[in-house]
């Protein structure tokens, strides 16, 4: 296998400083996810199989992620989720269902919580994206991150970044007035470990504390 052929998106320009590791990682432009075993059902005769090459010229997109502006060349099919995880190495944003049903990929785009898996990266031109990695400041966890630890708002932790990004929005949107309201406005975030009551408690506590979120 000729490894040199494995070319992922290319970072064209980047206005912030990166650690050596990050810079190396971006400049190498290599594939970063491994063998991702995502079952794709057969497209049988009944399906929409087609023979077009599916090999696009890279397209350019500029967006700001966690305060850093990036100019990137990407496969036009790349979702915002894959861009964050595979090209910018921001794997805190999780890929759960990849179809908008679980909320694990929740990020803030121009301040609003959205699903990164149902967003094409190319459509985020000039947008400001914030991920879970942006919440901690100067080495201190965000109040909601601390509350999730205190109230044990998770087990496996895979839904947690999405829950926290969504929970921050829930408080900012002033929809955290009661347990019932939190349950309703957090319904887009599934937790298969069943930590829901603790998640509600964590959000309630931060909301009631009046902390800046």
């Amino acid at each position: 296998m000729n490894n040199e052929r494995i070319v992922r998106g290319e970072e064209l320009e980047n206005e912030a400083d990166f650690s050596e590791e990050r810079r190396f990682f971006l400049k190498q432009s290599v594939a970063m996810a491994g063998l991702s075993f995502l079952p794709v059902p057969f497209v049988t005769a009944a399906g929409g199989g087609d023979s077009s090459p599916g090999n696009p010229e890279p397209v350019k997109v500029t967006l700001t992620v966690n305060g850093t502006r990036h100019r990137l060349a990407i496969d036009v099919r790349t979702t915002l989720l894959d861009l964050l995880r595979e090209q910018l190495a921001l794997t805190g944003t999780k890929k759960g269902c990849d179809f908008g049903q679980c909320g694990a990929c929740t990020v803030h785009v121009d301040g609003q919580r959205t699903l990164a898996c149902l967003s094409f990266a190319i459509m985020q031109q000039s947008k400001k994206v914030h991920t879970i990695e942006s919440l901690a400041k100067n080495g201190s966890l965000h109040p909601l991150q601390q509350a999730f630890i205190k109230h044990d708002g998770f087990q496996c932790g895979y839904c947690t970044p999405g829950q926290i990004m969504s929970g921050v929005s829930c408080i900012r949107e002033k929809k955290a007035g009661s347990a019932e309201e939190i349950q309703e406005y957090m319904s887009g975030n599934l937790c298969r470990c069943g930590a829901y009551p603790n998640i509600v408690n964590a959000i309630m506590e931060v909301k009631n504390s009046g902390s800046q979120v």
Binding site: M1, I6, V30, G34, S36, L38, V40, P41, R85
Partner: peptide, 17 residues
């Protein structure tokens, strides 16, 4: 899925219907 290495290939399963 979040360990990072140079020169990884990607594999996708096709499954029976």
């Amino acid at each position: 899925a979040e360990y990072r290495f140079k020169n990884l290939a990607h594999a996708v399963l096709v499954t029976s219907t």
